[in-house]
Design a protein around this nucleic acid. Structure first.
Lengths: 255, 255
DNA sequence: TCTATTGTTACTTTAGGGGTAACAAATGTA
DNA sequence: TACATTTGTTACCCCTAAAGTAACAATAGA
């Protein structure tokens, strides 16, 4: 209907704080250069009756200039200035927020031993954090190379300074990655592949154990990814034993 | 009621895209470090029944981590990471918007000769633009030093390379500024001071004429500021004549 | 077994934004 | 001048997201 308007642009402008109609009107005005309310309405689909108050509110923010008359004419302020201004304001807002939040939390302890993380970037952050803290030894179990690829640099660094053990379900899948891999037995491989809980197939698994005292388990069911961070030494130790078992066929409890 | 929560912080977080309750819950969690839903509710005033879905939505975004159980415990992800992530996303959004808007407007001509600007920063932008474009001569009439102070640097630069005439209603007010001023006659001064239109006193005035072909008039009524940009050569010329008249007492029309 | 707390559901209320219809004012035209 | 058209404004309605409320089952603790 209004093919001129890039919906992604409108969405972006909304994310930056404009309403849908404000975004449409501003974008429309930018492409019209200079226009009457009616022209903005016709290009953007914003109801004619609304165009006036919307352009007025944009003018109040300084994003639009008005030439009074009948008809009045409207003109968009240079996007470079407008977007720059919005960006600066949001950045200041972020800086101030951070300062205020830091006042609330003087130190930032990770008190509890078990936490669940439900967003992709949250998981990535945590993994990065854990990788950065590895001192002696890192054990990884993975069924998917994607994650190893993402942290290749960090892992290479660990490989140089610590002991790095990567256990995978199938060597072939990891062929392209520059690490030494160890393969789990076929029984476990089949088990993992066919794992279904409550009707959901868990098609991606990754465990990390750092220095035998902190572990993170990432799993994906369908397109939802989740991670559990565990700082219980006993559990980590147990996990270590289990990997030993998977790998060597022996299960030794020595604590 | 809930003195712990800085309302400015909540407002900032809302500006960054969180809802009011999300902002409260996150800020509350940051200061509590680790807490149950009830504790978050008690500190922040978010209805207890709502805390769960709100924290879940925060967890989905990766801003909060959850430890399942009864009661479940919640933990805020480090504000540095959270705010950093939000900031990055908004900056990307701004960059993309700008690119998309630039696609719409290849050149950015200022076609029409009269435009009205209704926001403070819009006015400032325009003035800066005009000042940057002065080639030969700049005439200013001002009743308030604030604006001159703001653009002191730009004006000094113009003074060096062009002819700069600053006319003021009262020398005394501008004493502290490092420019040469010329004073208007007392009749005009009184006129300006007592100017009332539709019951509104115009208590601040500033006119700029750049190279006799572009002018901007800024006026303030109460706390509302507005500016009119005029590019009509004839009008600018007339204005110039009028200032001449104000200053020297002679009015010469020679076009 | 009883009680208190937790976690969930289904509702109401509210406010902001979007959309529509109608009309007065301004403009243009026969 | 009378009429038609367009412009600018107002008063509505509708919808949705979010906030707030009440009630209840599940869980945990005494």
């Amino acid at each position: 209907m209004y093919p001129e308007l890039n919906p992604r642009l409108i969405c972006n402008l909304e994310r930056l704080g404009l309403t849908e109609n404000e975004a449409k009107a501003y974008a429309g005005l930018v492409s019209l250069k200079e226009a009457t309310a009616r022209e903005v309405h016709e290009l953007t689909g914003v109801p004619r009756a609304k165009v006036y108050e919307i352009l007025k509110s944009l003018a109040k923010k300084g994003y639009v200039e008005i030439r009074q008359g009948s008809p009045s004419y409207f003109r968009a302020v240079d996007p470079k200035l407008v977007i720059g201004e919005i960006k600066d304001e949001l950045i200041n807002c972020a800086i101030e927020s951070l300062a205020q939040l830091n006042e609330l939390s003087y130190e930032f302890p990770t008190t509890s031993p078990v936490w669940c993380i439900q967003s992709d970037w949250g998981i990535r952050n945590r993994i990065r954090e854990i990788l950065a803290g590895v001192k002696d030894e890192l054990i990884i179990f993975a069924t998917n190379p994607g994650f190893l690829r993402e942290f290749e640099k960090e892992l290479k660094h660990i490989e140089k300074n610590c002991k790095l053990i990567i256990i995978v379900d199938e060597l072939e899948k990891f062929r392209k990655l520059p690490f030494e891999f160890r393969e789990t037995g076929s029984a476990f491989r089949d088990f993992i592949r066919n794992l279904v809980i409550d009707g959901v197939r868990y098609d991606e698994e990754c465990f990390l154990i750092a220095d035998g005292k902190e572990s993170i388990a990432v799993h994906r069911a369908g397109n939802k990814r989740e991670a559990v961070v565990i700082r219980l030494p006993v559990i980590c130790y147990l996990q270590k034993m289990i990997y030993n078992w998977l790998l060597e066929g022996k299960f030794v409890m020595d604590f």
